[in-house]
Amino acid sequence: MWRYALRRLSFLPIIVFAVSLLTFVILRVLPGQDPALVIAGQGATKAQISQIHAQLGLDHPIWRQYVNWVGDALRGDFGTTYQSQASIRSEFVRRFPASFEIVFLSLVVSAITGITFGILSAMYRNSVLDYAVRVFAVFGASIPEFFLLTLLIIIPSYLFNYSAPIGGYVSPLHHPWTNLRLFVPPALVLGIGGSAALMRLVRTTMLEVLRSDYIRTAHAKGLSQRAVIIGHALRNAATPIVTALGMAFVAIFGGSIIAEQIMSLQGVGQWFFASTVLRDLPVVQFLAVYTATVVIIVNLIVDLSYAVVDRRVRYN
């Protein structure tokens, strides 16, 4: 398996290179993307814009700019933001915890909700619970996250004058309760949104498995329902579930941008958004590469986990 993992990892630089190149070119070729216009402002002359181009190295041919960027990136220097002149690396480190916590908690909510209710729905097929879960799954998949999140702000406020904490990220180590109040709403919304597809997949897969001969045999042997479901059925249904979890992660990762914006969290997603609006090319470039890397690694983890959840899978 490790050889397989290493082989997969060896593709990472190639894919990251492709993504970075594509992003780099697109950011510079598309019309209306000149960051010098933003930096120079309304009253700038052509000479001043040219001067800014020179300062930022944008007067070089694109290939040269890219080579310079790659050279710096390989040394761990991703440059500075145009907006604040802060180091991109330090800014990323500052913003990462908020984004990580949102994505992590959302994934936990997504996994727990999706798998639990998917199993229950399959076990009690065509019951009220089953119908409720299916309706909930459709609801979760069809309602936009920003709308749900807005409702989660408006309804408690209207009913109880309640508000989630404001004022930015609070570490769980320093203020665990405040941190939970801050992150639970977006985690619930993103998690439930992500769990909808998972719930349906788990239900379908479990239904198929529960009809299998070996499940009937397990029941005949007198195993408890719990042992049958967890020890036999779920284990055999795990492979597609893991795949769905990987996909849920990617969806949550994207959804966190909106969640951070609405919850006023200074995370990586909000940074991505603001930098795109203000043509902060180094930041957009870095975050595009970061996103690609994360998605690739998550996919690799998903692939490797197949061997863990299903012993029949062998990576040679």
């Binding site: 807005t150 702000i153 408006i154 408690p156 406020s157 004058n161 309640y162 508000s163 989630a164 904490p165 404001i166 004022g167 930015g168 914006q261 609405i262 919850m263 006023s264 200074q266 909000q270």
Partner: peptide, 21 residues
């Protein structure tokens, strides 16, 4: 004076009603 980032209008209104602003 403490300024608190609240980018969403609904969140700001909720914070005001909750006495956080």
């Amino acid at each position: 004076i403490d300024f608190k980032v609240v980018t969403d209008d609904n969140a700001a209104l909720a914070a005001f009603k909750a006495g956080d602003l």
